[in-house]
Design a protein around this nucleic acid. Structure first.
Lengths: 251, 251
DNA sequence: CGGCAAATTGACTCCACTCAAAGGAGGTGG
DNA sequence: CCACCTCCTTTGAGTGGAGTCAATTTGCCG
C-alpha cells in the first residue's frame, strides 16, 4: 500500500474505513467539484454523491465497454486508467490522484472507453453524470467547474504529446507527480510511487528496462534517489533542465 | 488550396466568400453544436455566433498565451493546433476538420495554451465561451452537446496514446482522416492532405523523411497511392491490419 | 528458508533519426 | 512564356537510442 496516497487526505475511522464525511468537510476541498459552490449548493450536490466502500488494490471501478452512467472522483489512493487494444495489450492512459476525475472520456459514447483500476487501497466518490449535468444546468458554479475540469484534462493530454527522449519523459513524469502531490499537501521532494515500473514504462511508451536504466542513470548523477518505489528528488533544477524542452509545466 | 476541404461544405457567394448563412441552413448540420437543438433554440444560439471573414493559409486564429474568450468551430478548410516549447520547437496537436471545435483546452486557464493556424483557405464560427456556457445553463440540449464534444476530444486524445511503429501511426492517421472525411460527405477512399509532410511527421512524432519512407513503402505494397498531397486508399483492409494493434477505431 | 515476482543490469539488434543530396512543384519577375 | 528560385518531397548512407532477450539481484511473503 502506498502510504503517501492514503493516510492524510481523508479522515479515517478507527476500523480503517474512511469516514462518511460530507463534501463540505472533505479535506479535498478546493481540489474537488464543490470548489466554486456556496454551502447551500454543496449540500444539493451532495445528494448525488455515492461514497462506496474502499477499493482494494487491483479492484476495478469500471471496465471498457460497460455502460456509462457515472464519473468518479478519486478521494484516496491512486487509480490507473488504461485502454486494451484488439491484441489484448494494455495502454496506460494516466494515474489519477485524489481530487482528479475519471470517466470523462465516456460521456459521449454511452459506454466506458477505458478501464480504471485501483493501484492501492483507494476510495472514490461516484456521481451519476446525467443527474450531475442536470444539476449543473441550474448551478453555474458547478457548470463552470465541470467545463474547467474537462478542459484541464484536454490540456493535460495535449501536453503529453511532446514525446522525446526517455530521460525527458521520465523527468516530466516525476515533475508532474511532484507538482500534484505538493498541491495535495504532500512533500514535493519525496513520495511513493503507487505503480510498478511496468505501468510507468507503459504510460511513457518505454520498456520497463529502459525506465530502470533511466532511474539508475539519474541516481548515479545525483538527481534523484530511488529505492524501489520510494522517490526522493535531490536536484529539482537539474531535473527540470532535462524536461525543459517540453512545455508541460502549466499542468 | 485544398479543394476537398473547401468547395462543397459551405455555399459560396459569386465572389468566393462564404455566404452568411444561418446555423439552421449550414450544411454542417448534424456535425455541429446545434445537433440536438430545436429550431427556436438554434436561433438563440445563433446570436452568439461570430462568422468572421475567411482565413488565408497561414493565418492564425489564436496564439498561445493570448487571453481566452472564444472557442471556434471549423466551418471550411483545415486548422492546425500546436504547442511551442521553451526551445521554440513546434508540437502539432491535431488537424481540425469542419465541424470540429478548437480552443477547448483554454477554457480552464484564462489564456490559450496552444496556437491555431489555418492550413488552407478556411472559415470558422467563433463563440464567446462565457456566453455559450451561460446559454447552455438554460438549454439542456446545448449543455449535453458541449459535454459530448469535450468528452469526445478527451477520448480522441487518449486513443492517440497508443504509439508504436511508424507504419502503424501513419496507417492510423490515414484511417482517422478517411473516417472523418467520409462522415462529412467526402470520399473515404480519396482525399487531399491539407498539411505538408513536416506537419504530419511532427504530429506523429516522426521525422518527415520517415513519413516519406512509410508512404513509399505503402505505395510499393499497393496499399495506397499518394501523389504529393493527393491520397487514394487502395486496400483499406490491409491498412487496417497494420493499424489494428491499436484501438483508436471508435473515434 | 525457499519460492516467486519485481527490478536491475548486460549484450545485441533494429528502427527511426540525422546528415546529405537530388528531384519536382509552384510562384515570381523579367 | 520561360528561367529562376524556393520550398517540399524523396531517396540514400550511416549512427544512435531504445527495444528485446537473457541472466542476475533484490525484496516480499508464506
Amino acid at each position: 500500500m502506498n502510504e503517501a496516497c492514503g493516510a492524510k487526505l481523508t479522515p479515517m475511522q478507527p476500523d480503517g474505513r474512511p469516514a462518511r464525511i460530507s463534501c463540505s468537510r472533505c479535506s479535498l476541498g478546493e481540489l474537488c467539484l464543490p470548489r466554486r459552490l456556496a454551502a447551500e449548493e454543496i449540500s444539493r450536490l451532495e445528494t448525488l454523491v455515492d461514497r462506496s466502500r474502499p477499493l482494494h488494490a487491483g479492484e476495478h471501478i469500471y471496465i471498457a465497454g460497460a455502460p456509462f452512467s457515472t464519473i468518479a472522483v478519486v478521494r484516496v489512493g491512486c487509480i490507473k486508467s488504461y485502454l486494451v487494444n484488439e491484441a489484448g495489450e494494455e495502454q496506460v492512459l494516466d494515474f489519477h490522484l485524489p481530487g482528479e476525475i475519471i470517466g470523462l472520456d465516456a460521456i459521449h459514447g454511452g459506454a466506458y472507453l477505458s478501464s480504471a483500476v485501483s493501484l492501492d487501497t483507494s476510495a472514490i466518490c461516484q456521481l451519476n453524470f446525467a443527474q450531475l449535468s442536470n444539476l449543473a444546468g441550474s448551478m453555474s458554479g458547478l457548470l463552470e467547474e465541470l467545463f474547467d475540469v474537462m478542459s484541464h484534462r484536454i490540456a493535460n493530454l495535449e501536453q503529453t504529446f511532446c514525446n522525446s527522449s526517455a530521460e525527458q519523459r521520465f523527468a516530466l513524469f516525476l515533475e508532474s507527480l511532484s507538482r500534484r502531490y505538493s498541491r495535495r499537501g504532500y512533500s514535493a521532494r519525496e513520495f511513493t510511487l503507487a505503480m510498478p515500473r511496468r505501468d510507468i514504462a507503459n504510460y511513457l511508451n518505454l520498456a520497463s528496462e529502459t525506465v530502470s536504466r533511466v532511474i539508475s542513470r539519474m541516481n548515479d548523477q545525483g538527481l534523484i534517489e530511488v529505492k524501489r518505489r520510494q522517490v526522493r528528488i535531490l536536484d529539482a533544477d537539474a531535473l527540470h533542465d532535462i524536461s525543459r524542452h517540453c512545455d508541460a509545466s502549466m499542468i
